[in-house]
Design a protein around this nucleic acid. Structure first.
Lengths: 115, 115
DNA sequence: CAGGATCCACAATGATACTG
DNA sequence: CAGTATCATTGTGGATCCTG
């Protein structure tokens, strides 16, 4: 499929949609953490240095609402939660790989990005 | 290549880099317009309903600085400019297709996105 | 441990008017 | 035509403190 008809973008545009889903600052990093398997809140926090608890919780909530990840709460004391990608969330892997590939091309080209 | 080592993300992460390059609201739509060939400022403006002249100019300038597109000015009266993707910019096509594909999967799944 | 509640700061966008 | 200047507004993120 090489047609540009893949991109009927304007509103309801799948590209826009994707940008809205994963365009927030830490979202891709969270997804990346989960690609290797389910993780707990604190594991994610440790795995993503610099993220604040508020943002982490916010992104996780959004991803859950969009059914890109599944949250499991174990009513233990202290509480335990687990996050894992849904099958739809797994499809983001391809997207993240594409982003990684393009980013590497840019790096290889030696482009300065620091605004 | 199936390794997760493709994603050594943290800082200097290619995924983050890509997000910074195309994460702005209208960037992907602008790139999409240019995939089909070079276009002028006013053509882009017409092709992307809702974008303000300031934002369009800002995005174009960023894309040019990042060497993702090339700007050509014809010193005619009235002035004429043309924008076209560089070879590096062309590589964004793959990324945009991946975004489109994922977005379509999400749409097919019937996910509600309107926050 | 896993977050929720607050408050602040600033970047990003939008709208409009204006100019070489 | 191809932008720039200005202003208002919102979104998004950061830091901190607090709680079941």
């Amino acid at each position: 499929m090489d047609s540009l008809k893949v991109l009927p973008c304007d509103d309801g545009c799948p590209v826009r949609l994707t940008a809205e889903l994963v365009g927030h600052k830490w979202t891709t990093l969270i997804v990346r953490e989960l690609i290797s398997g389910k993780k707990r809140y604190s594991e994610l926090q440790r795995g993503i240095p610099g993220i604040s608890p508020r943002i982490l919780a916010e992104r996780l909530k959004q991803l859950e609402q969009h059914q890109l990840l599944k949250k499991t709460i174990f009513p233990t004391i202290p509480p335990t939660t687990e996050y894992e990608l849904t099958s739809l969330g797994q499809e983001m892997k391809q997207l993240i790989y594409a982003m990684a590939a393009f980013g590497q091309s840019v790096q290889a080209a030696g482009i300065e990005v620091a605004a």
